[in-house]
Design a protein around this nucleic acid. Structure first.
Lengths: 338, 338
DNA sequence: AGTATAAATGTAAGCGCTTTCATTTATAGC
DNA sequence: GCTATAAATGAAAGCGCTTACATTTATACT
């Protein structure tokens, strides 16, 4: 065990008080230049490294932020963590992670676990805990910001995607390519995401004086099986359609596989658009046209919220609603409007 | 700011000393049952939550572990983090993350950043820093374990995959399916991974008294482009082959795309095997047969190493070399040996 | 009851740093 | 040179907890 120099040793070597060493280190009070140089030289000679735990205790600021996400794997969460970590790293704050697995008990426990570390703030991507729980949490002494969760009572601390616009863009692209009979496989309609994406789909149709045909609608589960079942159900109606919008990429992938198994060729038989631009969307055959979701930027913005609200360091405006954009790939082909 | 009760307030309410409250809290010294009950009741009444920063300073143990990975996104790192976080969460240790981006300066800075947090240990997945740097780091007071890095001088703290066996399994599967002319697209041969995987390939061939044909070998870059260029180069030789092994899934994906663009059908024209089982491998067309890499279990094992070596808490044997296994999907088809 | 020993508890110092208030030093103006 | 003021620095207390050693209490044995 190599001995770590303390602030006391630096002060003795530099011939100044502890307080002056602290002032030099934190650069928060004027120090005469000649004194500063003596202190810095002593620090360098001793290889001094401040004990951040002692700093945290004395200053009542841990310089760390807890992040609770549903999972640590998957393109969504990877991008989120990347955005968050990079922003905090640049600001010298440490990021502590925990996974909530979208389970009520695990999420709550995870929040408490992070609180127990005296994190200065939390960034939460949680699904299972109730709005009430979060409203109560907002009354405790732990500041937090929510990612991809909308709670009106906590509006100033919610950062999310404009799902309605994403649904609109997905369908609008098909309409602009001449498609008029557009089938839709939705996520679970109790989920706000799924509902808003479908609303955007409806709005795009309305722009063309069209109405969604309920027979060309299937409520899926946001999983691959929802996509394959949805496509089978829609095909079973015997109704014509030239394009399919899926509420997320995983269901789109399921639909692609099902189509292939039924001897249907995408986009020749019908075009497909997904949502999320998860990384596998690029590897499907055909490569999937989809809606991109700037999750890394959203994570970054959550970090900025914390830097602004808790650390008072950011001066930049925090954007709370993010806009998706359309990623054209190979799964859409134009057709003549009927 | 809601007032947090301190250990002093608990001791007063319970009518015992600070030390006794600490003993009850840490359960590390016998305390009479009646005293314990008084203390626990006082804690509950006051909603007492220990200040972990103060605990860390007083005990010289931060109960946190730093993780430096190359990236925070991607299936590889997501699985690793998941394995690590779950193990530490169960043990009550906090996980602090940082990304090194495989850049020398960023990796070193990341290590120092984590050290500056007084982490009790580090788990490092680093590529750019030299063996010498890590050997010197091992002489400092920060214990660390390496994931997917082999340094003989630090053998007891390296956890990695048996790449040679993975390469063997990939090729052995094809040989067992009757393939004899097997092309190989390798990763960069200065990388240990790439070299060992190719060695496994050679060993599998040797089992069948075969020798790898250098004309059916291409050194790629572990990226998609390496796969497509590799296939083109191999096809350009005009030599017959019935199967292709790629050193990783991304190159395999590139080869699949290139084959399709050349009007070649996999596995009808030739079979393909990848390596890594990244999540997109399931979404290619055809679904890719590949070598699975138990990265989550490896992360978990790294965590166990830390728990055993630093916290003295794990009694389980730590496994350092992990074995891959073969994942059969749709990209391989049997053929008659020539 | 007395003695020896074990168990339980208390006292005090300290972990390494921050920050408030007191003191000293430097500077400007007359 | 003297005075007033600003700048710089030091002394001391404290952040909330741990733990070693001292002291007290309880238990077992005679």
């Amino acid at each position: 065990m190599i001995h770590m120099a303390t602030i006391y040793e630096v002060s003795k070597l530099a011939g100044v008080s502890l307080a002056t060493v602290s002032r030099v280190m934190n650069n928060n009070t004027p120090v005469r230049e000649s004194t500063r140089k003596k202190v810095l030289a002593a620090m360098e000679q001793l290889g001094y490294r401040p004990n951040s735990i002692a700093q945290s205790l004395a200053s009542n600021c841990s310089n760390s932020v807890g992040i609770l996400v549903s999972e640590l794997h998957g393109p969504f969460y990877g991008a989120m963590l990347t955005g968050i970590e990079a922003e905090f790293r640049a600001a010298g704050k440490h990021v502590i992670i925990a996974a909530g697995h979208s389970e009520l008990a695990t999420e709550q426990e995870g929040i408490e676990f992070l609180q127990s570390r005296s994190c200065d703030a939390l960034i939460l991507h949680v699904e299972a805990v109730s709005d009430d729980y979060l409203i109560k949490l907002a009354q405790t002494d732990t500041p937090f910001v929510l990612l991809n969760r909308q709670i009106p009572a906590l509006a100033d601390r919610c950062i999310s995607l404009n799902n309605e616009l994403g649904g609109y863009l997905a369908t609008q692209h098909l309409l602009a390519q001449g498609h008029r009979d557009i089938a839709y496989i939705a996520g679970p309609m109790w989920k706000t995401d799924a509902k808003e994406r479908y609303q955007g789909h409806q709005r795009a149709l309305a722009d063309y004086q069209l109405v969604a045909n309920p027979a060309l609608f299937f409520e899926g589960d946001f999983r691959e099986t929802g996509g394959s079942k949805g496509l089978s159900a829609i095909l079973a109606t015997g109704l014509p359609f030239t394009a399919l919008v899926c509420g997320n990429d995983e269901m789109a992938s399921g639909a692609l596989t099902a189509a292939r198994e039924l001897g249907l060729s995408v986009p020749d038989s019908f075009s497909v658009v997904g949502f999320d631009n998860v990384n596998f969307a690029y590897y499907t055959y055909p490569k999937l046209s989809t809606i991109d979701y700037p999750i890394s930027a959203m994570g970054q913005m959550a970090a900025r919220w914390v830097l602004r609200e808790v650390y008072r360091s950011a001066t930049v405006e925090v954007q709370q609603l993010f806009e998706p954009h359309f990623i054209p790939r190979d799964s859409v082909k134009a057709c003549s409007p009927t």
